[in-house]
């Protein structure tokens, strides 16, 4: 039995990929010393010359990875906090996402950008952000946001082996919080698939990252009250597994979407639209969303941070309302 935390799952997978494919290398800030979250700890010594410290310049981390991927390498870039990826937005939006499209597949980019996202660590405005909505609005980039260690392992491997740019989102609050026996657990090996993690007849909750765990905790509580929830672990946000999303909505007819990101323009809007367009006749209630409030970013003080973040109690409260509708 191999019980692993999320960070151990990531570190072990990076080591395995560096071992099995000599085209892989890691580029990012502080990665030679192991990175601020220790995701790359020990790798620089094991793989000399293939774990490369970058200057403090995010556009270069992504732009250089693009060039290396074009040449045939499989760069694994690390952006230290998702909040700082915006300096590389242009390289992802104007370049990476269009590389295959604008050459009609003549050129392509097998590259991964890993980055820790999400709140709950007293990270304030610039170490807590959810960035997925920006990149899910970018056809050409795949966006992956796992929740459990076994999926982190299998999907990180799939991301590295994929011939396209993949933004691999790692919820930093779960790095050491979530443990799992990765040998026995189910592991999704394909990008673009979601998983129905829990089945119940009363309503369906969609979530990813830390909020998936909070949703499962809420579902446990609700089960004791006689409300049975289906919980969907989205895993890949773009391209979205529309089939599973719709199947899960049709199963219960009541939909609750949960994300940490602020409400307006958040990924939940797209999910809601998809379900409203294609499963309208199955719905028994208006679609509900639990999300961060529409303020610019997560405040630092723990009281305000707690106010910002959805959690199991807020999810359960919304679910009770929805179940009673």
């Amino acid at each position: 039995m191999a019980e692993m935390t999320v960070i151990e799952a990531i570190r072990s997978t990076l080591a395995e990929e560096l071992t099995s494919d000599d085209r892989t290398f890691i580029l990012g800030e502080d990665v030679e010393a192991g990175g601020v979250f220790r995701a790359t700890e020990g790798l620089a010594a094991r793989f000399p010359g293939r774990v490369i410290d970058s200057p403090l310049a995010e556009s270069s981390i992504i732009g250089i990875s693009i060039g290396a991927a074009h040449y045939g390498m499989r760069p694994i870039a690390e952006i230290q906090f998702a909040d700082f990826i915006h300096a590389g937005f242009d390289q992802l939006c104007s370049e990476a996402s269009r590389w295959s499209y604008r050459t009609k597949g003549d050129s392509w980019l097998p590259m991964v950008v890993r980055t820790p996202w999400g709140g709950g660590v007293h990270g304030g405005q610039h170490h807590s952000q959810s960035i997925e909505a920006y990149y899910c609005h970018m056809p050409g980039i795949k966006v992956v946001a796992p929740s459990f260690p076994a999926d982190y392992r299998s999907l990180l491997r799939a991301a590295i082996e994929d011939p396209n740019p993949v933004l691999f989102l790692e919820h930093k609050r779960t790095y050491r919080l979530i443990k799992q026996d990765v040998d026995d657990a189910p592991a999704e090996t394909r990008l673009g698939r979601s998983r129905i993690t829990r089945r119940g007849n009363d309503l369906t909750i969609y979530a990813y990252g830390l909020m998936l765990h909070e949703s499962l905790a809420a579902a446990d509580t609700l089960a004791g009250e006689g409300i049975d929830c289906t919980v969907v672990d989205l895993l890949t946000l773009n391209p979205l597994d529309k089939e599973t999303v719709l199947e899960a909505a049709k199963m219960t007819g009541k939909v609750l979407i949960v994300h940490e990101d602020t409400l307006t323009g958040g990924f939940g809007g797209e999910l809601a639209a998809l379900i409203a367009e294609h499963a309208f006749e199955y719905l028994d209630a208006p679609i509900r969303r639990v999300a961060g409030p529409d303020i610019p970013a997560m405040p630092f003080h723990h009281a305000m941070e707690g106010f910002f973040m959805p959690n199991r109690d807020k999810i359960a409260a919304a679910a009770r309302d929805l179940a009673a509708y």
């Binding site: 732009g63 693009i66 060039g67 290396a68």
Partner: peptide, 10 residues
């Protein structure tokens, strides 16, 4: 220019 640097690094 960054793509060129990435190719050169590779």
């Amino acid at each position: 220019l960054l793509h060129a640097v990435g190719i050169a690094l590779a």
